[in-house]
Simulated scan of single mutants.
Amino acid sequence: MPTLDDLPPYRRAKLLWDYAHFGVPGIEDMVRERAGQPCRLSGVVVPASPRVAVLGSDGRRHLMSDGRLICSDRASAQGWEHRQYCAWGQTPQGPVEDHRVAEAYQSIVAGWLVRLVDEGVPPESVPVEQRCGGGPYGGFHYWPPPPARTSAVRRLRAALVDALGPDCHLCHALPGAMVDHDYATGLVRGLLCKFCNRVVEECPHVDGCPKADYMTNPPAAHLVLRYPPSLAWKPKESTRQQKIALLGFDPLAEWRPS
């Protein structure tokens, strides 16, 4: 039976960080209970026909392919049914996007109907603010990703696309949007969709799971690309103190710059 200590050191530390609210015993239990049950990937099926962005009666563009809206639950006589899940954390200073660092968790599910207005335009021509975010994981996972903000990351993304293709190098179903790297080594692991990039390091499996296998044998390892240290993830000091309060120690102290 695998234990938390069977994970590579950095993966162990990151799991403690991400699930600090469970406490060390709770995380140990999760590793044991999830053994033999691989993590789910996005579960998305790539549409057969080209996607187009159709204007809806709500003023937003909606992706259509294979005769249906990707961001809709189903069609009715009144229009295409939509739902969007919204979650946020509440702190004394106000709401924050990352509910894991907050004192309270809040969420709502918004629902609305959409009637189609035109035949559609190429998805890449639609500004981000006009794109519908409905659907099981948010419609943004199906849109072509916007250019990276820095030239260094744009070059890394281009190298990954040239060598390994434009779709997510983990689930292979959604457009690759994020240059993923190992924070312990700085080496780029691959190009991930937004969903996989958000959850890959929450994987509690030692092996036998697509996410664990991706981290153990990164598809981009042979390219030896390094992520710019100045752009690496840096949690807020208040977040670090919250993790210490939950665990009694900083699990990422070994990799934190002095």
Rank of each mutant, 00 (worst) to 15 (best):
Ala184Pro: 10
Asp58Pro: 12
Pro210Thr: 04
Phe140Thr: 01
Asp73Ser: 09
Gln130Asn: 07
Pro8Gly: 10
Cys39Arg: 07
Ala212Ile: 08
Val121Glu: 07
Leu223Glu: 08
Pro175Val: 08
Leu7Ala: 09
Ala75Leu: 11
Leu55Cys: 02
Arg189Glu: 09
Val117Cys: 12
Pro257Gly: 02
Gly133Ser: 12
Trp112Ala: 08
Gln242Phe: 00
Lys211Val: 05
Trp112Met: 07
Val44Asp: 07
Arg11Leu: 14
Asn197Met: 07
Pro95His: 09
Leu192Phe: 12
Asp250Glu: 13
Ser258Met: 02
Ala212Phe: 10
Gly89Met: 03
Leu164Glu: 03
Pro257Trp: 03
Glu33Trp: 01
Arg154Thr: 14
Leu116Glu: 12
Gly120Phe: 03
Asp58His: 05
Asp6Cys: 07
Ala87Cys: 11
Ala13Asp: 05
Val224Thr: 14
Ala102Asn: 11
Leu191Arg: 03
Gly248Tyr: 08
Ser151Pro: 05
His172Gln: 12
Val188Met: 03
Leu16Glu: 13
Gly56Asn: 07
Gly208Asn: 13
Val117Lys: 08
Arg240Asp: 00
Asp98Arg: 12
Leu69Met: 08
Arg100Phe: 13
Trp17Glu: 05
Arg189Gln: 14
Ala184Tyr: 10
Trp80Cys: 02
Gly111Asp: 14
Trp17Ser: 03
Asp167Trp: 11
Leu4His: 12
Val52Trp: 01
Trp255Thr: 04
Ser65Ile: 08
Leu231Lys: 00
Pro144Ser: 04
Gly134Met: 00
Ser125Asn: 09
Pro219His: 01
Ala158Thr: 13
Pro204Arg: 09
Glu124Met: 06
Leu170Ile: 08
Pro145Leu: 04
Cys168Val: 05
Tyr142Thr: 01
Lys243Val: 15
Thr239Phe: 05
Leu16Ile: 04
Glu124Pro: 02
Asp29Cys: 03
Glu33Ile: 00
Leu55Pro: 00
Met215Glu: 11
Glu124Arg: 14
Ala77Gln: 11
Val96His: 05
Pro210His: 04
Leu225Arg: 10
Pro175Ser: 13
Leu160Phe: 08
Pro147Phe: 02
Cys193Gly: 02
Arg154Gly: 10
His181Gln: 09
Val128Gly: 01
Glu237Met: 06
Asp98Asn: 15
Val224Ser: 14
Ala212Val: 11
Gln106Cys: 11
Pro136Arg: 11
Glu129His: 12
Cys132Ile: 06
Ala87Lys: 12
Arg51Val: 15
Pro218Val: 09
Ile244Val: 15
Cys209Thr: 07
Arg51Ala: 11
Met178Cys: 08
Gly190Lys: 02
Leu15Pro: 01
Arg11Phe: 03
Ala148Glu: 15
Gln241Tyr: 00
Asp98Cys: 05
Pro251Leu: 10
Ser76Lys: 10
Leu187His: 13
Cys171Gln: 05
Gln84Leu: 12
Arg149Val: 07
Met1Glu: 03
Pro127Gln: 07
Arg12Gln: 15
Thr3Phe: 05
Asp98Val: 06
Leu192Pro: 13
Pro219Phe: 06
Ser151Arg: 12
Trp143Ser: 03
Ala102Ile: 13
Leu63Gln: 11
Ala20Ser: 15
Ala253Glu: 15
Ser49Ile: 00
Pro136Met: 04
Cys203Ile: 07
Val126Tyr: 03
Asp5Arg: 12
Arg154His: 02
Val114Thr: 11
Ser49Phe: 01
Gln90Phe: 00
Arg60Cys: 03
Leu160Ala: 04
Ser42His: 02
Lys194Cys: 02
Ala232Thr: 05
Arg40His: 12
Lys14Ser: 05
Gln84Cys: 13
Leu174Met: 13
